[in-house]
Design a protein around this nucleic acid. Sequence first.
DNA 1: GCCGTTTTCGGCCCGACTGTTTTCAGTCG
Length: 572
Amino acid sequence: MRVTNRQIADIFNETADLIDIDGENPFRVRAYRNAARTILSHPRNMADLVEEQFDLTSLKGIGRELAKKITEIVQTGKLSYLEKLKRIHPPGIEKLLKIPGLGPRRVRLLHEFLHINSLHDLENALRQDKLQSVPSFGPKLIEMIEKELKKRRYEEKRYPLSEADSVSRWLLETLCSAKGLIEIEVAGSIRRRSETVHDIDIVAAAETENDIMEHFTTLPEAERVLMKGPTRSSVILINGITVDLRVVPAENFGAALHHFTGSKAHNIALRKLAITKEMKINEYGIYKKGKRIGGEKEEDIYKKLDMDYIAPELRENRGEIVVAQQHRLPSLVSEEEIQGDLHIHTTYSDGTNTIREMALRAKEKGYEYIAVTDHTRHLAVAHGLDEKKAKKQLEEIDRLNEELQGITILKSAEVDILEDGSLDLPESILKELDLTVCAVHFKFDLSQQAQTKRILKAMEHPFFTILGHPTGRLIGLRDPYDIDMEAIIHAAAQCGCILELNAQPDRLDLNDIHCKMAKEAGVPIAISTDAHSVNDLDLMHYGIGQARRGWLGKENVVNTRGLKELKKVLKK
DNA sequence: GCCGTTTTCGGCCCGACTGTTTTCAGTCG
């Protein structure tokens, strides 16, 4: 069984946890965590790179030692160094680090003084009132640990972007009425458009006299105030989401927004760069030789560092800083550039609106075209189209295209890719369609080899246009099916196929890393909503966010083209 | 453990908030 990047990253993170508890040099701990991050966001499998004898030390944060360890993991499936650490540490002790308030030092103290090695031990010690005997464990800390244990909050929860998005919009509206507020924005991973978020970060600029913190910490929806200071506070809302609010004077707003937008890795890299230029960046501004030279606007920071402004979606320390210094950043695709939606369901299958209703709403949105892509017969749960139903739909589309002005309905279908790689519609229908969105909807558990072969076979079909939701994942619910994405992207480039970026917030499939891979391979992307109702057409912006995270520009996205240009792309 | 416009040692982002050892370490983002 081939080792995945995720497994290698997990091994490094666990190693970092254990040596952290041991009180090792914190920079050594960080080196392991940095390497885990690099590996996780690398588009290619470490296993393949090792096989190709690729020089792993050319990767950021990976030197000789960690390159050797990666090779060992790829070859043996485990890391002997970690195995050794595990032998001298009680199993599960690193889980204690997940409890807010417990860092490596306090976990070590718990172990030394009370032999606490697991969450279970910790619960027992709490019940027996033993914790106060540990140095530096006062009543407040113990109370906090007790609450955290009760709530099981140490099982880190991540929220889908769409959920956090609506909560943050509500928060902005609510806080708007606070006295002395000048400006307020959502920062953090929501602003970077991450697929899932851990908490909500909000940054506000305000007059000296303001009641924003008071307003915030006394919201009826704030179940608990975690901390409250004059410039920074944190609450847990009744729905469980943690919200951090930072309030600064207007002159510091840009720097604060930048600081709290992150990512952490991006900020660290940028600050390191600043140091080489005898500058310093903090949440109040950018400084040269102790003198503040900017920070009112976020753009100041990049400008003073002599680099292009980096959009929040790119701030992951995945090479954006170097490219910005070279003034070679891509101009990222925006929602206004989208001319149509190429994946839409109607009442012909499992959609709730008619073709006409969908077309009219698309027209309202300023689109030039939509593709109607109802399910085919194999997907019986979705009342898929058989040949007869498909014909009827095609006739209706002809009538509507004559009748409706200003919007063109393209004939299509979301065609099932059957287990043997064939398509679930007869050629007599396929040839009538303007395009197809082909997708896997069953037999998710094939081996990587079989699943990849199935999709590659389908892509060879002359009527194959777009690979719909390429990995089939449902974020937090269903893992992607096991496919060799490199092989699929390579094949798409060869045969001129398009890959879909499905904009449904629980899919966002392709992910950012695969988007970038596709772009580099010259494979075009279709950003589609997979709308099952007129309101779903508004989900496009989630796809745009993901596309921007994947470095995609207008030229990489097929549905930024007008109808005429699009048709040229579709004609293979 | 990594890294180099101060290159093979000696640094490694930076500040707010909290609790408690009452002057600062630990944690967090």
